[in-house]
């Protein structure tokens, strides 16, 4: 496994967005292509990161790979292969370092301990036939699950009990991901409509946040917050990252289609470290792209 350190490369010009948050640029730090044994990634869809670590859901190979990621340098690359996880697609790290993994084939969320040992399934208590499409963890380790069966977001406490259910809007839409910010606002991403909806911490129903983004993105796949007033949307079919304000305003677009380093091809999950590093699960390029976020 090699991680090339590249000279700073601003990938796209900043658009003339009104807010200062639009001054976000992504500087390519080169991709990660394989594990420590040089086994290449195959269609990776998930990535989770912290200051010091990076975990990859190497979806096509049916495994996870754990790396150290310190001072911008990625090293290691230990394989975690579990019988329970044959098609991992989304990862989240909780405050204790436990790894939560959504497996698309099993249609369940697994909990692994910090060493990667399987601890069990997180099956929501109080909801039947849940099919989780996506999930997020907040700072208090509450789990937010986008449930296709009930068409709602289920909020689970640490024991897995459903403490809150927020129905998704009943309309032609394909909700594929959600995000939650520090204030407890939940955001939901509609891939078909290219829209983001939101509900405040005490709210009962989602309301439209950003509308009419069809020209800005095409079948987006992933949504996350940067903790600094912006939402990052992985524009899957449009091949890029779209920046939105938490008020739904369009702030700009970063990255573009390509196979060379610094470009993306069907990007999926994104993760941001507190120190401002960004990892992108670049499914079509069979790699994880690393960037430094500069403002």
């Amino acid at each position: 496994m090699s991680t090339s350190m590249k000279s700073a490369l601003a990938l796209l010009l900043l658009c003339a967005a009104p807010a200062a948050r639009a001054d976000i640029a992504l500087v390519s730090r080169g991709p990660v292509y394989a594990d420590a044994k040089a086994v290449p990634f195959q269609a990776p869809e998930g990535v989770a990161c912290s200051d010091g670590g990076l975990v990859v859901a190497d979806t096509g190979n049916g495994r996870l790979v754990r790396f150290d990621w310190k001072d911008g340098v990625v090293s290691g690359g230990t394989e975690i292969k579990l019988a329970q996880l044959t098609y991992p697609i989304r990862l989240q790290l909780d405050s204790k370092g436990d790894l939560l993994v959504l497996d698309r084939r099993a249609k369940r969320i697994a909990r692994l301990d910090p060493k990667g040992a399987f601890q069990g399934w997180v099956d929501p208590k109080g909801a039947a036939n849940v099919v989780p499409l996506a999930f997020k963890v907040d700072a208090a380790d509450a789990l937010y699950v986008l449930d296709q069966t009930s068409g709602s977001v289920l909020v689970l406490d640490a024991s897995g009990a459903v403490t809150r259910t927020v129905p998704l809007p009943k309309r032609p839409a394909i909700f594929v991901d959600l995000a939650v910010d520090g204030a407890g606002t939940i955001y939901a991403l509609d891939a078909a409509g290219s829209e983001v909806w939101s509900v405040e911490k005490a709210g009962a129903e989602f309301k439209p946040l950003s509308k009419g983004l069809k020209d800005a993105m095409s079948f987006p796949s992933y949504l996350t917050t940067d903790g600094k007033g912006a939402l990052l949307v992985s524009d899957q079919n449009g091949n890029g990252i779209v920046l939105l304000g938490i008020d739904g305003s369009y702030l700009g677009r970063r990255l573009s289609i390509g196979w060379s380093e610094g470009a993306v091809y069907y990007p999926v999950q994104l993760c941001l470290t507190p120190s401002g590093e960004l990892a992108v699960a670049d499914r079509g390029n069979n790699r994880i792209d690393l960037f430094t976020v500069t403002r």
Binding site: Y33, A34, P40, F41, G258, W259, S260, N285, N286, R287
Partner: peptide, 14 residues
């Protein structure tokens, strides 16, 4: 091999 990406080989979608 795709010269742009060591993890890809050349196919129609290249």
């Amino acid at each position: 091999k795709d010269p742009r990406n060591q993890n890809l080989t050349l196919n129609c979608l290249s």
